[in-house]
């Protein structure tokens, strides 16, 4: 990505007395994690290409509290939520797009009863919208004929019943989509959810991400597509554990589309 990315903040919009179409909620992983930052950039590239007027909160964004909630710390979650809601409401944010299904779920389902009511969409849903409205057109050559298998993120799929948007978006790459045996509502978790990302797993005989990577490898893919920064890390590690990093790459749908 050589061209300079345009990432305006809400504060800048406010100063000009304007409202963006959407707020891009970057999330903690998307802001700080080296792998996930690339996903954020890829998504911004898409937004720039489609001429979407968007903004981020930048320094005013804070962790959604999702992971604290799932770890059992309802206090910390609600404090984070109320702080964020204060900021979001002050900017009169209407629509939020995020690349992180955990933030997506949390903002969409758990913020409303605390006073934060927004139209929240996952980036795969938003990309689908951009394509079907004709704002985003793809050449669709980069991945033509490649075998791609999509790993459903728990918090997009089972948690919110969105199985189609990522698949429909992927069709635009002209790749050959192959499904794992466990997919959609029976998809196996990558192992990162419920705060597992931040701790060592309990004693067992295998790591969850390795088991899930085996599911993916069984489809003989060139690419494992993800829709969540944490899944991406987990599957990347799984591919490494299976010593397949030479043959299989793990890419977010935003990256696949940005390159198509």
């Amino acid at each position: 990505m050589s061209e300079q990315l345009k990432v305006p903040t809400m504060a800048e919009f406010m100063a000009e007395g304007k409202q963006p179409e959407i707020l891009f909620w970057v999330g903690s992983a998307g802001s700080y994690d080296d792998r996930a930052k690339k996903i954020s950039k890829a998504f911004v590239k898409i937004l720039n290409k489609a001429n979407v007027e968007f903004a981020v909160l930048g320094e005013e964004e804070s962790n959604t509290g999702d992971v604290a909630k799932r770890a059992g710390n309802e206090f910390l979650f609600q404090m984070q939520a109320m702080m964020n809601i204060e900021v979001l409401n002050a900017y009169e944010v209407k629509r939020i797009v995020t690349c992180d299904p955990h933030s997506f779920n949390c903002l969409k389902n758990e913020y409303p009863s605390l006073g934060g009511n927004y139209d929240v969409v996952h980036h795969t849903q938003y990309i689908k919208e951009l394509i079907s409205s004709g704002r985003l057109t793809l050449e669709g050559n980069t991945y033509k004929g490649k075998r791609i298998t999509f790993h459903d993120p728990c918090y997009l799929g089972r948690a919110n019943n969105e199985y189609d948007a990522p698949r429909e978006v992927l069709k635009n790459t002209n790749a050959n989509l192959v499904e794992m045996k466990r997919h959609k509502n029976t998809a196996l978790c990558c192992g990162a959810g419920g705060a597992q990302m931040f701790k060592e797993p309990e004693k067992g005989n295998m790591d969850i991400n390795v088991l899930r990577t085996e599911d993916a490898i069984a489809t003989k893919p060139d690419i494992i597509a993800t829709g969540c920064p944490y899944c991406n890390t987990m599957m990347t590690d799984g591919v490494k554990a299976k010593e397949k990093e030479g043959e299989i790459s793990v890419l977010d749908i935003a990256e696949l589309i940005a390159n198509s």
Binding site: R70, C154, R158, A159, N185, T186, L188, C189, G191, A192, G193, G194, Q196, K199, P201, E202, G204, I208
Partner: peptide, 11 residues
């Protein structure tokens, strides 16, 4: 602490 909150059981 082993739960990933993946909702597979609920599903």
């Amino acid at each position: 602490w082993a739960c990933t909150t993946c909702n597979a059981c609920v599903e």
